[in-house]
Design a binder for these strands. Sequence first.
RNA 1: GGGCGGAUAGCUCAGUUGGAAGAGCGCUGCCCUUACAAGGCAGAGGUCACAGGUUCGAUCCCUGUUCCGCCUACCA
Length: 923
Amino acid sequence: MSTPQLDKTYDPKAVEARWYATWIERGYFHASTTHPGQPYCIVIPPPNVTGSLHVGHALNHSLQDILIRWRRMQGRNTLWLPGTDHAGIATQNVVEKQLMAEGTSRESLGRERFIERVWQWKATSGDTIVNQQKQLGESCDWERLRFTMDEGLSKAVLEVFVRLYEDGLIYRGERLINWCPRCLTALSDIEVEHEDIKGKLYSIEYPLEEDPTIKLTVATTRPETMLGDTAVAVHPEDDRFKHLIGKRVRLPLTNRAIPIVGDAILVDREFGTGVVKITPAHDFNDFEAGERHRLPRLAIFDHQALLDSDKLVDASVDHAVIEALRGLPVTKARPKVETLLRDLGALVKIEDHKMAIGKCYRCKTVVEPYLSPQWFVKIQALADPAIKAVEDGRIRIIPEGWTNNYLGWMREIKDWCISRQIWWGHQIPAWYCETCNSTLIHKQVTTSTDGLPVVRLTLLQGAKPIVARSAPTCCSNCGSQNFLRDPDVLDTWFSSGLWPFSTLGWPEQTPELKRYYPTSVLVTGLDILFFWVARMIMLGLKFMGDVPFRDVYIHALVRDAEGQKMSKSKGNVIDPLHVMEQFGTDALRFTLASMASPGRDIKLAEERIEGYRNFANKIWNAARFGLMYLDGPKAAHPPPARSFPDRWILSRLNHTIQTITSELEAYRFDRAASVLYHFIWHEYCDWYLELIKPALQDAAHPDGPGARQTLVETLETTMRLLHPFMPFLTEEIWQTIPHQGDSIVIQSYPAPNETWRAPEAEELFTLLEQTVGLVRTGRVLLNYSPGQPISFYMSHDDPSRNSRLHQLQRNLAHLSRGTADLAPRTDWPTVNLLRLVTEGLSVGLVVSGDVDLKKALDRIVKQQEEQLKEMGRLKGKLGNQEFVAKAPPDVILDHQTRLRSLEHDQTMLASSEQQLRAMLGTP
RNA sequence: GGGCGGAUAGCUCAGUUGGAAGAGCGCUGCCCUUACAAGGCAGAGGUCACAGGUUCGAUCCCUGUUCCGCCUACCA
């Protein structure tokens, strides 16, 4: 048998692509509904189809792949279902930017041709992220790749919309919604990001109609909206103002008088002036107050957030004022109105005031509350079961701290605005009879760049929609056959909310749906808990009658090393592709796993990844080492006896397997990773491989066969244990060492093996480690050069010199063979002794006759530790040179005494050592 | 405004029935010892944010304070 050759360093590039292709070719990731194992299914949070893999994806996907690979090895029927999201506004914005660069726009292209253009872009760039996911080693079932605008998923969207409508859970209504004046679309509440800014609080005087000398002072942060005021409010129990309720004030700059109403909800007597203006068309609170008092809604801004002169006329604004304000955006309208009010003498005060503004989560434009007809999902009936499912534990949120977050949000949830005035997405399945709604339909026809007509459709509030699975042919009311389809599309999150069942074939009752729903766990970042997770729970319960997943595992956000959000403009983005190229995919995956502690953001620095690249290389070289000794005779039958190091490493391995398994069950990827790291590097490499070297390197050593067998057995097991974290490296090594089966991907995951437990070996190891540690420390502190043999006297206990050699042998034999074997072994060298001798050391351990060995060792170890620690501290402070010279007298004394005693013993032990060496057959 | 999380070595973070402070990286010293210099060995470095309380004993439990982060929100 020839020893396979491995390079001195691990080269990930050569390995990764090769194995991934093989895995795919052999269909290891393809799930079969007939596989007998208990199902384990994860649906991937679908990335934007036109996006590329960033480090957040890398984290999210690495964790899922660890779970999937682990469960697959455990024999579960695993399905990891991949897919991409059409990401309405985001994708539309990307394509619109391209068009802008080409000097055109979506308007001039027209709806159909624009959508075609987006599909083209999807066709050319849609594979990018999928290919990058493959580079990361993701073991997804690519044959089941889904896209939110696939035929099947679109059918699910249609079905859900129609059913919700039929159940009265979807309605169309004119409401004040968040409006992005740049994207020209409605946004749901959670699509608005809030930001604190320094604003101003303006106090404006509104004269009383019946007696203009009496003035009410209102406080507002948005004076420009005052032109749309339709009332002012005071607290109904405010003695200052309550007698004025029912009277009217004149609205400055306009020709209107507006009522004074009493409203305990809107008005806080303590704040500002105690008088609030009500602008129902431009403020959410005021909208609600307007509902309560049946106030008219006067919109003065248009859909681009510009002051609309027609509307200003409707609002009876003074002519001159309209001239001054016509077409101004909010930002310019505010100072202008401020000037006008000041000229009028109505502006009494401006104070600094911190306030929050909302921005579009896609383009960061300041959003405006805007009055328009939109589609909504009536949410309460859906939210209640979704609250209950989490409360009663059918869905577990991990870490559980987020549970309250979820419940709190769900209990306060408001109707979900699902219509978007964009083109890319699922168009709402609602049609309007042109005849019946003729006065409510506004068509604006323009011409595209190439001469085609472009229709801009506005459907006013009150238009009667016909919601259906397909376009109606005949109006049941008037018999007309002319219909217009609602131009709006659905919120992106509407389709992704169906993801756990739409991807499995719903509304068809597919075998996949039966087998894999509910899915096992959803792995996601906190940022889309409300956007996505909450919607999936609500819609899953509604349409499947069961939760969409058992666990929700929420991981941290990835930030840069300084804890800042990664962004292109800051230049602090870590590109996972670049990292994989530089350090290898396994290193990146392991880094992300090891940093995935719950409840903390991940601050990622390249040095960390480099550290784990080194870890990969360490493993690689451990395997190389193993391979050097595997060409000996095959494992004997019956298996050879295990020596102390063999028993010890197996015991540690067993412990490691137990820990990894329970940590993974608890989604503690970080602890699992750290346990693996520690076991492999510091137990397996640093100690075990060193301890068995003597047995391996001497062909006639009696421990040789046992060591060889244990070596390969532990290596093979460790590779399986590590595989979910580092799939490529482990496959490459596993294929090189003796194994059974075609690929590590489909091997069983190591299970704890109670027969490997060896507490006595672990105890002895601790003693050995301490003893050896003391010897090493002593040698460094005493400035012994590496090759120089030393003897290290460890105790003043007794000392019958004659018995020393005997004791030494005895103790070391004890260390190497376990408590059962206390008889001196003179036939073969013990591993520990050889190891120490190899280092040029010999160790004297003196124990008086009947004393308990372990206790004695323990005491010696403690004594030495303390003294050495003290010496070490001194040395650290003073430096090597000055150590002896400047040490306090008692320490010097101690040091010198020690040296004398060392010299004395050295003579004695040197001869012992010679005898030993002779006995051991080592020169 | 409300809620949640965090504060432990120079840096990043572990640390669950309260019981003698841990890891990785970095740093210092010595080593190219036939798996690995992407390595080995050793070492330095901590009032566990601050102030109280409970306890024989607190990094851990309780109260308050300060600072940071996140989520959420209509104080005009």
